[in-house]
Design a protein around this nucleic acid. Structure first.
Lengths: 186, 186
DNA sequence: GTCTATAAAATGATAGAC
DNA sequence: GTCTATCATTTTATAGAC
């Protein structure tokens, strides 16, 4: 009995699989999901389309493998925060720290929020904004439209700024968070 | 000599042409440009693909006719502001007032910033941010990375908030602008 | 794990009748 | 102005050899 031809073995991910994810991420971020064909990815990778289908059953699965860890990570972070009462600064800091390791994926998400429809990146976005609106609102109040819009300004602005190279400097990032907190001040 | 079969006559735009733009805008905003086929637009419109090609020489031209007036409008507004020294509140107010009549197009732009590559929506976005960074910076200074990131937070946040239904209330919008100004305060 | 070959469908676009 | 019919190309995806 020799090893199965399965793409994974003992948790080890094949090199081509990982490289395909990296190439796909880069192309999704620059052209968007629909505008990126498996042909494009395979060419950049130096293999044929058929080889890609060995590693991923369909194009959507490749996309999922790229975006899902990001979505799960942010969902988990916000779930841990949920219910607690924290200073706004701490809430937004936790949010940006959760996004930070996924900046490249975030860029792809901002570039094509509707990529692979069944992934529902836009739904994730809405979910995060709603969760943050709860965490940032005055306790035991229903957020007014003013508050909802201000939250969108603060969170949307911070999220957008996260793809800038400047935020690699922790001081710059901390300054941005502090500035975003001022949006929500009464 | 009868009238030419040209799609325009005396500045009057045919009804199908306008309806096609409306349908295209809606589909671009929900699915993105690449994910929207002329078939989709034609079906929604109740005509055939071929009929669309009577009104627009190519898919990219249909997209251009939808996005260009928006881009030109914002470019013009920012050009008029350029050079002048205005309070930040006034700069951001002028910006949102320029975007406001084009909210549906803005939503499509945020949904698929790379739509119709030759249109360069992303370039327009970058251009606007750069122009606003100049207008919002302390006069006669080179913006620091802190300032650049803060500008991205304020402008990016405001832009994102503009697609929310809540901003139809002028008071809510004014509050959002005032809140965004606080991001840039020293 | 990667290849060649190919199927099956969809897409942007054109020609020409009405 | 809209239609039917068609083309060339590209796309996702599969079969099967090595």
């Amino acid at each position: 009995m020799t090893a199965t031809p399965s793409p994974r073995r003992d948790g080890r991910t094949t090199d081509t699989r990982r490289r395909a994810q990296a190439v796909a991420l880069e192309l999704f971020a620059t052209r968007g999901f629909e505008a990126t064909s498996l042909q494009d990815i395979a060419r950049e990778l130096g293999v044929t389309k058929a080889a890609l289908y060995y590693h991923f059953p369909a194009k959507a699965d490749l996309a999922r493998s790229v975006f899902q860890p990001f979505i799960d990570d942010v969902d988990r972070t916000l779930a841990e925060l949920s219910g607690r009462t924290l200073p706004r600064q701490d809430v937004l800091t936790a949010y940006v720290q959760a996004l930070l390791p996924h900046r490249a994926v975030l860029a792809a998400m901002l570039r094509d929020p509707g990529a692979a429809a069944d992934l529902d990146l836009e739904g994730a976005s809405r979910r995060w904004l709603a969760a943050l609106a709860d965490l940032l609102a005055e306790p035991a109040t229903t957020p007014s439209s003013r508050t909802r819009v201000r939250t969108a300004v603060a969170v949307g602005g911070l999220t957008r700024a996260l793809v800038l190279p400047e935020v690699e400097d922790p001081d710059v990032l901390a300054d941005a968070v502090a500035a975003a907190v001022r949006v929500l001040a009464p």
